[in-house]
Simulated assay, not measured.
Amino acid sequence: MKITDYISFKIDRLPKGYVFTYADFITEVNQREAVIKALNRLVAAGKIAKLSKGRYYKPEITPFGNLMPDQTQVVKDLLEENGKTVGYLTGYSIYNSLGLTTQISNIIQIGKNEVRPAFKRGQYTISFIKQNNIITKENIPLLQILDAIRYIKKIPDTTISKSCERLSVILKNLSDSEISTLVRLALKYPPSARALLGTLLDTIQTDNITEPLYKSLNPITKYKLPGVKNLFPEADKWNIV
């Protein structure tokens, strides 16, 4: 089978929106140039689209044009290495999915233990947020919530008060076990994030679960989060002004 036919055969079996590189088709070292040429011919023919240098995807075609791949597909090589989870979507990438904003950003933020400078990939800017906790598939949803609390002032097209109201709803839907894990993970977050989490958890009355957070804070430090105190009287206890 010719390389072009082989590549077309494999692409036909890929789901729409799937991102791949030439390395996914190479079985022999000397095939690299032939594979790249074949892929570029398929781009010219409109069968596949180019995301960025060396990265392609199988587009989903709609009456309004080709849909871009899901953000997870765009950065999947940065989220997993050798089958191990090493990063997760966070920040602007998940504010919309958490119901914190209606805006969709072309900035994809990734939480990782080891960060690197931001870079461009197609129409997206990929940036990184330092995560001090061990990252597992199980704790990613909790880390995303904590990141939203940490960067609450940067959530676009909303207010701190509205974000807190939405976050309190999200926290109410967590199990006791998840809240316990959330508190443990929060201990590696900045003091302002711990104070705001403590305020929100006290509001939904989770029996002394916030004590580790409270003990971890400097009792004389104030945290400026306008509007929070008006909505949540518990903010006084946490020195939120």
Rank of each mutant, 00 (worst) to 15 (best):
P141M: 03
V183G: 01
I145E: 03
Y189R: 04
D202Q: 02
L79S: 02
S177A: 13
S168N: 05
G111K: 01
L143P: 00
L201R: 00
K224C: 10
I149G: 08
K16D: 09
R121S: 13
T125W: 14
Q123N: 15
I155F: 10
L171C: 01
A23W: 10
V169W: 11
D12I: 07
L187Y: 09
Q109I: 06
S163Y: 05
A195T: 07
A34F: 13
S216D: 14
E178S: 05
G54K: 13
Y124T: 10
R13K: 08
A38F: 04
S163N: 06
S8K: 01
R121V: 13
V29P: 15
I140M: 06
L200N: 07
L142Y: 00
E138I: 04
F25G: 03
E211R: 14
Y22R: 02
R121Q: 14
P233S: 04
L100S: 02
N82M: 13
I110K: 11
N96G: 09
P233C: 02
I170Q: 02
V86H: 10
M68R: 12
E234T: 03
R184K: 15
L182N: 06
Y18K: 05
L217Y: 08
I110D: 13
F64L: 15
P191R: 06
T90L: 04
K224P: 08
V29S: 15
K222N: 14
G87Y: 06
A195D: 08
A235R: 02
R116F: 14
G54T: 09
P117K: 05
A49L: 15
N82A: 15
R41K: 07
T210A: 05
T181Q: 15
I126E: 06
